[in-house]
């Protein structure tokens, strides 16, 4: 463990768990609903701003709930643009993302960053619960494990309900949905509200975790979340629903570990966005590359065996001669 100190592992796990909520959000919008929701960046900052403002007001727990509600509202706007006004989904996300910048500034009282040092956060509240040795160090991780675990369980349960199944069907086969009494517009709206509330929750958590909120915190978040999602789906497959959800969380944590390695290898922080972009590209390209390699191997082996057959190793050939 010379390479990783306990502190690095702990931070990667904690931040990875918070980011896994955004990856789960994209799992719902991108993988399940088949919609590219690019409002993630703004929505994450919105959750961050709402969470920070509420924490400063002395309501850290309520801050998380409000951030989720704010995220759901943002999702509702994105969905309405698509379903009611026929805006293409990518454009709807970009429009909302742009508009949210001003909204986020307004939430933060028109300052570009907020500090919540010295205020009670959910993490300080949990840490204060016990005086046991080590609890102070590990309480944040325990809290995040519980929160993310609960989010995963709820999401799994939800996707198995009639409503959840209808949302899945909407993303999987639109002609089928139209033929089976489901209102696709309503399903997209509900799906994006749930999805963006997860993003909002992640924003509120990161604000309280870092004890600050910044207007530019969300920039590039959609790429990071997409990287986590794709790492999860590539490495852990597309099996049954519980495995897929666990895979997404594992992907987000793994992504943080890759970044931690980059940090240990003294990659400058300015290059982090490039590293994220590379990880996404590699993760998406991996299945195709694997397939290409497999084909090349089969071709080589196939050539060899056929060449041997032509040289007369095959008894059937000899008889023919």
């Amino acid at each position: 463990m010379g390479f990783f100190t306990a502190g690095i592992v702990q931070t990667a796990l904690e931040v990875g768990l918070i980011y896994s909520l955004i990856a789960l959000s994209l799992f719902l919008s991108f993988s399940i609903l088949n919609i590219c929701d690019l409002s993630t960046d703004g929505c994450y900052t919105l959750g961050c701003a709402v969470g920070a403002t509420m924490t400063i007001a002395g309501h850290p727990v309520l801050g998380i709930v409000c951030a989720m509600a704010a995220g759901a509202c943002s999702g509702f706007v994105t969905a309405s643009l698509q379903t009611v006004f026929g805006v293409p989904s990518i454009l709807a996300g970009i429009i909302v993302n742009t508009g949210l910048y001003t909204v986020n500034l307004a939430v933060m009282g028109f300052s570009s960053n907020l500090s919540i040092f010295g205020k009670d956060t959910v993490f300080s509240m949990i840490a204060g619960l016990s005086d046991a040795a080590g609890w102070g160090d590990w309480s944040a991780l325990v809290l995040l494990l519980v929160l993310v675990g609960a989010a995963c369980l709820l999401l799994w349960w939800f996707l198995g309900t009639r409503l959840g199944l209808s949302i899945r069907a909407t993303g999987d086969s639109s002609p089928m949905v139209r033929a089976s009494s489901i209102n696709p517009g309503l399903m997209i709206t509900i799906g994006l509200c749930v999805s963006n509330s997860l993003t909002g929750m992640a924003g509120a958590l990161i604000a309280q975790y870092n004890k600050m909120a910044d207007i530019n915190l969300g920039t590039g978040m959609v790429t990071i979340a997409l990287a986590s999602l794709i790492i999860g789906e590539t490495l852990f497959g597309r099996g049954k629903m519980p495995a897929r959800i666990a895979g997404v969380v594992a992907g987000a944590v793994l992504y943080r570990f890759i970044m931690a390695i980059a940090l240990r290898l003294n990659v400058p922080t300015e290059a982090f966005k490039l590293v994220s972009a590379l990880i996404v590209a590699v993760a998406i390209a991996a299945p195709a590359a694997k397939e290409m390699l497999r084909f090349q191997m089969e071709k080589r082996i196939g050539r060899r065996t056929r060449a041997r057959a032509d040289a007369g190793d095959n008894p059937a050939d000899k008889e023919a001669r």
Binding site: R168, A169, D172, S173
Partner: peptide, 9 residues
């Protein structure tokens, strides 16, 4: 036949 069902479900 692909239209009436959701393949991933």
């Amino acid at each position: 036949p692909l239209m009436g069902t959701a393949p991933h479900m």
